[in-house]
Simulated assay, not measured.
Amino acid sequence: MEEPAAKLTCRELEVLRLLAQGLSNRLIARKLDISEKTVKNHLSNIYCKIGATHRTQAALYAQYAGLTDPGEAAPPASAPAPLPEKDAPPAGPCLTARERGVLCLLAWGLSNRLIAQRLDISEKTVKNHLSNIYCKIGATHRTQAALYAQYADLA
Rank of each mutant, 00 (worst) to 15 (best):
Q150P: 02
C94A: 07
E99V: 06
C94M: 10
C135G: 06
A88Y: 11
L105T: 01
H54G: 08
C48G: 13
L119R: 04
T38G: 06
A88K: 13
A107I: 01
L130K: 01
A58Y: 07
A79Q: 05
A107N: 02
Y61D: 00
V102G: 00
P76D: 14
L60H: 02
V102Q: 00
R113T: 09
R100P: 00
A73C: 15
S44C: 09
G138S: 08
Y148N: 00
K40T: 08
A81R: 10
A107V: 01
N45D: 14
L106H: 01
H42L: 11
L95P: 01
A58I: 07
P70R: 10
A52F: 09
P76N: 10
R100Y: 01
L106G: 00
S24R: 11
R98I: 04
C48F: 15
A145Y: 01
V102K: 00
A116F: 06
R98L: 08
Y64E: 12
A107S: 12
S111R: 05
L60A: 02
T96M: 05
Q63W: 15
L105H: 01
P70N: 09
T125L: 06
P82W: 09
S44F: 13
L43Y: 03
Y61P: 00
L95Y: 03
K124W: 06
D120Y: 09
A91Q: 02
A88D: 14
K124G: 03
H129N: 09
C94K: 12
K31W: 05
G71E: 15
T140D: 04
Q144D: 02
R26H: 15
A58N: 04
A73M: 15
E72A: 14
A77E: 12
D87G: 08
Q57K: 07
L106V: 03
A59H: 04
L114E: 09
N45Y: 10
H42P: 02
R26A: 14
Y61A: 00
A81N: 06
A91N: 02
L60N: 03
A139H: 01
N41L: 13
A81E: 10
